[in-house]
Amino acid sequence: MRITADNERCIGAGQCVLTAPAVFDQDEDGLVTVLTTEPGAQLTDAIRRAGDLCPSRAITVHED
């Protein structure tokens, strides 16, 4: 699994940070920042949920 985030699409809702704080954060403008692009298997469900909850679809989860 690999994660990418598109700051051009991000609206700063913060659902990703609430759902998977070990993987996502927000920068000073409130836009998504990916803390780790290749997280461990224990975070898989939370990451998928964060991608699903993102209202602007700024988060992409790549199943490798």
Rank of each mutant, 00 (worst) to 15 (best):
L53Q: 12
T36D: 15
T33G: 05
Q42K: 13
T44D: 15
L43A: 09
D45S: 11
R49C: 03
T36I: 12
C54P: 08
G40Q: 13
T36G: 05
D45G: 02
E38C: 07
A50Y: 01
A41L: 07
R48Q: 14
R48P: 01
A58L: 07
L43V: 01
P55Y: 11
G40V: 05
T33I: 14
I47Q: 01
S56F: 00
R48K: 15
R57C: 09
A46F: 01
D52T: 06
T33N: 11
R49N: 02
T44A: 15
Q42E: 15
D52Y: 04
A41E: 15
L35F: 02
Q42V: 14
P55F: 11
V34R: 06
S56A: 15
V32I: 14
P55G: 13
A46N: 10
T37N: 09
A41S: 08
Q42Y: 04
G40K: 08
T60S: 13
V61F: 03
C54T: 10
A58K: 02
A46T: 09
C54A: 14
G40N: 12
V32S: 05
A41G: 01
L43Q: 09
P55S: 12
T36M: 09
V61S: 03
R49P: 00
D52S: 07
R57Q: 15
R57L: 10
A58P: 00
C54W: 03
A50L: 06
V61M: 02
E38D: 15
Q42N: 11
T60M: 07
L43Y: 10
Q42H: 13
T37V: 10
S56E: 04
A50C: 07
V34D: 09
T37H: 13
V61L: 10
T60W: 00
I47W: 00
L35Y: 05
R49I: 03
L53G: 06
V32K: 04
P39F: 08
R49S: 06
G51S: 10
T60V: 13
A46D: 15
V34P: 01
R57M: 12
T60G: 05
T33S: 10
R49D: 06
